[in-house]
Amino acid sequence: MTLNNLKKIFLWGLVLLIVLIVWIRFPLIFKEWVFKILVKPPFTPEAFTSLGPIGDIFGALTALLTSLTLIIVIYTAYLQRQANIHAREAMAEQLKQAERAAENQLQQAREATNEQLVQAREATKEQLEQARASTSQQLDLAQSTHRAQLKETIYSNFINTYNSLINYKLAKYNTIQVFNNGRIWHAEEIFKEIALYFLGQYRIFELKLSRSEIGVLYNKTLDKIAGTDKGLHEINSYFLLYESIYDLINNSEISDEEKIFFRKATSNMMSSHEQLTLLWAATYLEDCHKLVKDTGIFSQFYREDLMPFLVTFFEKSCFSHPDILSNWDKYLNNQNPT
C-alpha cells in the first residue's frame, strides 16, 4: 500500500519525536542500565573500572552513528542529485516540448502566413483584374464618347457648311432674272423656257448634232431669251455651285447612307426644268459635265426618246431616276458615241 505525502510526513515526524525523546531520556536510561544491570552494589573502584570498555563501546557507537549520519547525508545528497537530475531531465523535456510546440506554432504560423500571402496575392490579382477591366471599360467608354462627340462635331460642321452652300445657291438662284417682253422673268420661268426649247430639238435626240453644235445651240438659246447684249451666262456659274455642294458631300466624314441622303436631297431641290437645263449645259460645258459625274443629280425627268442621247453623251452615274437606270444597259448596247 503506498503512503501518500501526508502519511509520510506524519511517519517521519513520529520517528523524529521518538528519537528526540530517547535522546533526552538517554542519560537516565543509561544510568538505570549501568547501575542496575552492569554494576551492582557495592560500588567498588574495580566495578567502575569495568565500565571503561563499555564507554569505549559507546564511543564506537558514536562513530557508527556519525558514519550512519554521514551515509544518510551522502544518501540524501544522492537523492537530491537524482532529484536534480530528474528535474533537469524534466526541464529538458519541457524545453524540448516547448521547442517542439514553438516549432509547431512557427510552422503553423508559416503555413498560415503562406496561406494569407496566397490569398492576398489572389485577392490582389483579382482586384488588379477588376481594376484593369474597369479601366478598360472606362477607356472604351471614353473613346466611344470621344468618337461620338467627334462624329457629332464633324456632322454639325458638315450640316453648317452644307446649309451655308444651299443658302448661297438659293440666293444665287433668286438673282437669275431677265426683263423680257415688258416683264421680269425669274429663274424658274427662264429654266422652263430653256428646257422646253431643248426638248423640242429632235435633231439632238436623234444624234444628228455633235457636242460642239449642241453647245452653239445652247448659247443661242440663252441669247434669244435674254438678248444678245445681256445674255444668261450667269446660269453656268450658278450650276458650278453644285460642284462645291457635291464635293462637300463626297469628301465629308459621314456614312455612305448619309451621303446618299444628302445627294438625293440636293437633287430634289431642283425642278425638272432646272435639271434639263443643266443636262443641256453639261453636254457642252466641260466644267458642268465633270460636276454631274457620280452624283445621280438627274432624277426629275424620263422620256424614252432621250435615252439614246443620254447614253451617248453621259455616264450612268449622273442619273438616279429608276427608269433611266433600268433601261440604261439596253440602250447603251445599241448606241455608238457621236
Rank of each mutant, 00 (worst) to 15 (best):
S156F: 08
L209I: 00
T66E: 03
A83S: 00
L70Q: 09
T161I: 02
I29F: 10
A133C: 07
E126N: 14
L285W: 00
E304L: 12
L117G: 00
Q108V: 03
E122K: 11
K151F: 08
G182L: 03
P337I: 13
K36R: 11
D329P: 03
K224G: 04
Q116P: 06
E304P: 03
W23D: 05
Q119V: 08
E32D: 15
R147A: 09
I85D: 11
K259N: 07
R132E: 06
I37R: 11
S271Y: 05
L106C: 00
S134C: 05
Q130T: 09
I71L: 14
G52D: 06
L28D: 12
I184C: 00
N180R: 15
T221H: 02
E188Q: 14
Y173L: 14
I260T: 09
N167V: 11
E274G: 07
Q275N: 07
K208I: 04
T277Y: 01
N104K: 14
N181R: 10
N334A: 11
L128S: 01
F35W: 06
L276D: 03
L141K: 00
R183E: 12
R303T: 02
T312G: 00
Q105K: 13
I72V: 14
Y162I: 01
T277C: 13
W185R: 11
A195D: 05
W23Q: 09
F205M: 10
W23Y: 05
W23R: 10
F43Y: 15
L196C: 07
S50A: 15
A142Q: 02
A265H: 12
I235S: 06
V19D: 07
L68N: 09
L64P: 00
L95K: 13
P41T: 11
N174T: 11
Y155M: 09
I24E: 00
I72W: 14
L65S: 11
T277Q: 06
R110L: 13
L128I: 01
V311K: 10
Q335N: 15
P45I: 09
A47I: 00
E304W: 01
I85F: 10
N181C: 06
L248Y: 04
Q80V: 08
L38Q: 14
V39I: 15
A98D: 10
I214M: 11
E253Q: 15
E253P: 04
A90L: 12
Y284E: 09
L106I: 07
V216E: 12
F239D: 04
E129Y: 04
E286H: 09
T69G: 14
Y218Q: 01
I71E: 09
L14K: 08
D329L: 06
R303G: 02
K220F: 03
K290S: 12
R100L: 08
L241H: 07
A123K: 15
Y168N: 15
K125R: 13
T44M: 11
L278G: 01
A109F: 05
N163A: 05
Y246N: 10
F298I: 08
K208A: 10
T153R: 15
S272K: 15
T228R: 12
E206P: 02
T312E: 00
Y155V: 07
E258V: 01
N180V: 11
Y173K: 14
